[in-house]
Design a binder for these strands. Sequence first.
DNA 1: AAAGGCTTGACGTGCGTACCTCAGTAATTG
DNA 2: CAATTACTGAGGTACGCACGTCAAGCCTTT
Lengths: 340, 340
Amino acid sequence: MSRVTVSDVAAAAGVSVATVDRVLNGRPGVRTQTIDKVQEAISALHYWPDRLATRLARGREYRFCAVLPDGSNSFMRALAEEARSVGARMASERVVLDLKHTDVFDGAILAATLETLGGYDGVAVVALDHPQVREAINALVRSGTHVVTLVSDVPDSRRDHYVGVTNTAAGRTAATLMGRFAAGQTGKIGLIAGSVALRDHVERQFGFEQVIAAEYPALGVLPVREGRDQWERVRDVTQALLEDTPDLVGIYNVGAGNRGIVEALEAAGRADSIVFIAHELTAYSRRALVRGTIDAVLNQDPGHEMRSAVRVLMALADKEPIVEGQERIRIDIFLRDNLP
Amino acid sequence: MSRVTVSDVAAAAGVSVATVDRVLNGRPGVRTQTIDKVQEAISALHYWPDRLATRLARGREYRFCAVLPDGSNSFMRALAEEARSVGARMASERVVLDLKHTDVFDGAILAATLETLGGYDGVAVVALDHPQVREAINALVRSGTHVVTLVSDVPDSRRDHYVGVTNTAAGRTAATLMGRFAAGQTGKIGLIAGSVALRDHVERQFGFEQVIAAEYPALGVLPVREGRDQWERVRDVTQALLEDTPDLVGIYNVGAGNRGIVEALEAAGRADSIVFIAHELTAYSRRALVRGTIDAVLNQDPGHEMRSAVRVLMALADKEPIVEGQERIRIDIFLRDNLP
DNA sequence: AAAGGCTTGACGTGCGTACCTCAGTAATTG
DNA sequence: CAATTACTGAGGTACGCACGTCAAGCCTTT
């Protein structure tokens, strides 16, 4: 049951290994007829090139670059940390993973950064959905650099793959949890987002409102308030929300800055009575979840996302198929009981 | 920035490659002093052996075997399917993954099966926690075959690793969902399990009862009823449960056979009024979840588990560290909105 | 019939490590 | 001091593939 090698194929096809090699690597100078013979032998013997030997022989390194925001909320810091650890681990597999921080919220700056990345085999980028960014991504792809979008997608670009969750589904999930956790109550739900210019925030909001409107008529969703992902600002927004809304039953924070909401709720003594659903599991949100101030955390696993991004980039570089089930990023729901 | 190779290390240490090789592979015939010199050079140059070249040179195949139940509920069938697909995919990486079906619910039979597996480098087994099985696992490990338990653990054996969820946490999670989904109601909760002899079922039950008792005093948990994981029997049990319990507000099915509960609930017209929490996402449970008869599904991803088992076995065979974050199996919570 | 272009075979080198043999040097023992 | 024994160096082969060179064979064209 030992491995089938190129020489086995050559013998079976009645040609030399050189010819088999030419066929396998698409080099010119082989008659169609001979190509067919070789291919028949390949499938008859179930030949499959040995990945290890192939990569060793090719001797090429995979040069990848991850582009992350320089503004540093916990999630993005975790993502950067994962990038470093994946990079260290993959070093013994001929993979180099560089890390670049930039202002991803400014289309022009992000696009300019991307334009310098043509030397890489692949780029993973937390992308703003902006015309200039889209163009920069397309230019990279055209120049032969594979691009995957990370966490936030640019759907109508030519990026090879999106590694992240479906944000409308995340919003819907938050809505169902909200609706059921607030069962029997009538009142308003406050929605807080970082900025309505961020695609993932808008999509979550959309999914959330859709389900609440359709399934939970006793609940009304208030207009979004922007917290810019900064917890101090989010705290002020939440305080105002609490004062303005006597019949507030729940809060859904679409973006970062959970700390602001937690502090406002606990200061007002409303931590237990108001259902609070948040995104991203961090050390802080974790404690608030255990304490009961946060009722559920929706999460995307930065480790999974970073590893997936690199696996996808490698598969693209090797022209190998992507294992869908492995690369689908799930929307994790964390309650206090199933924390990792 | 090219790779550091053994000859670089040899040059730096002032010895020959043969000596470096002896040190690296723990072969005898090198003075302690020389070993130190080599090791200093290794860390000074940050040498790390090239995995590809190592595996190519060793030329060894990894022979693994997955032992799964021959009784075929959807989850186990999915697991077997994943094993086949992982096996096919890994064939080009010198990994052979055989698949064996056996009666894992009979300790003696399972132990006998395990005893035939000494030729493998690693075994992944869905294990019954039984003295004979434990002994068989220990014997395998002693003979140099790595063992990981899959889905169901044998904690006090010498198995190298457990690939699966923490079942008490799963039970607690189900309880929190139940408590919150049934908020405001007072009544009883029915508990259905496959068999109280299965470790994972008992643990889920334990976690569930713990949280309900502590956090949701308005709810009482009825004694477990056994459905043997067969849906016809589960249906009958559920019908009896419905008739016996006028104030039933929820059902938690710890094991398989969701179809029995779904049919009983829908036949009785209680699908909407009773909170039903189930385990394992299958084509059937998925439809029932979308329809609303099932309110939440707790799931362990068979694909993730199978891939993880193989990765862990490979890491063990190579004496490489295991990436904890990657191998932790999460308890997925699925609502109708975040279905994959 | 000679020139030129396709096709193919034969062979070599390299990727980085594992593992083996053999000779030679140094240190230890009786 | 000679005889062991313990180290070390030099060199080779193998793993399976990628890639390059060179020459030989064949067919077409003029």
